[in-house]
């Protein structure tokens, strides 16, 4: 778990290898100070060949519009490449912001990791990781 930006901790882990699924676990405030750190991690995973991201927001207390923009942009990019992004454990306060922006229909939000993995890997794959 790294802690570069004030108030944001970010952990990345490859949780499935073929295809690669990257878990991004964020904790704390995801504001403008944390953007470079998250962008860099996403870029690093993308460069390593990951087209599937599980973004765990359960412990995020705040997210700004630029953070939402990064996620929306990632969703659009990966959908166009046959990949995908699933958001896990999205707190109610963050759901409200997604809702006021009318972007909920473009995002895949899940409460359970198993369900998120099935979505990312396809229903036929037994996602027990």
């Amino acid at each position: 778990m790294t802690e570069k930006a004030a108030g944001l901790r970010l952990r990345e882990e490859t949780i499935h290898n073929d295809p690669i699924v990257s878990l991004l676990e964020l904790e704390g405030r995801f504001d403008a100070e944390g953007l470079p750190q998250v962008l860099a991690e996403i870029e690093r995973c993308r460069a390593a060949g990951s087209k599937r991201f599980l973004v765990d927001l359960e412990k995020v207390s705040f997210i700004g519009s630029a953070g939402i923009g990064i996620f929306l942009s990632l969703v659009e990019e990966l959908n166009g490449e046959g990949g995908g992004v699933v958001f896990l454990g999205v707190p109610e306060a963050i759901r409200r912001i997604f809702d006021v922006l009318n972007v909920l229909e473009f995002l895949d939000l899940r409460d359970r990791k198993e369900s998120a993995m099935k979505t990312l890997l396809g229903a036929s794959v037994d996602a027990t990781t």
Binding site: G64, S65, A66, I68, G69, I70, F71, L72, S73, V75, E76, E77, I97, V100, L101, N102, V103, F106
Partner: peptide, 24 residues
């Protein structure tokens, strides 16, 4: 307000701050 139905707007990922203020 940003037209979020436009994939290009979502891909650009900017311009949402004022809309959040308006709605909040």
């Amino acid at each position: 307000p940003p037209d979020v139905r436009d994939p290009n707007v979502r891909r650009r990922g900017r311009g949402f701050g004022l809309q959040i203020i308006r709605k909040s």
